[in-house]
Design a binder for these strands. Sequence first.
DNA 1: AAGATGACGCCCG
DNA 2: CCGGGCGCCATCT
Length: 105
Amino acid sequence: MKEGMFTDMLATVRRIPKGRVSTYGEVATASGHPGAARQVVWALRAGKNVPWHRVLGAGGRIRLTGESALEQRLRLQTEGVTITGDKVDLKRFHHIFKPAKEPVA
DNA sequence: AAGATGACGCCCG
DNA sequence: CCGGGCGCCATCT
C-alpha cells in the first residue's frame, strides 16, 4: 500500500539523532524526494512524534517565526546544539544521512 | 479549473 | 549580509 512522501520524510527526520540537525532540502533528498523541501514542511506539521526542531533551512538557518522559532531554539539548545544569531553551525551539528546505498565510487 | 500559500532553495546584484 | 526574483510542489480557496 502506498505510504506516501510524507511518511518517507517523517521516517527520515526521525533518523536525525539528538543533538544533530538537518535541513528541509536534505530531508527531501534523503527521503527520495529531491526538490520537495516545501513538502517536508507539511510532513512536519502533520506528523506526530517527530523531532521537527532538528530540521532547519539551508545553511542551518532557523526558518520558523514567532513563538515557534523560540520553541525550536529552546529545544535545540536543550539538546546541546549551539545557535549563533539565527543559525546553527552545520560544520559542527549537521547530520549526514547514510547514503541510501552504493558505496562511494 | 485558476490563483494564492508557504517552517524552501538557489542564483544574482 | 540583504533584498529580489524565479523555480518547485502539495494543499487550500
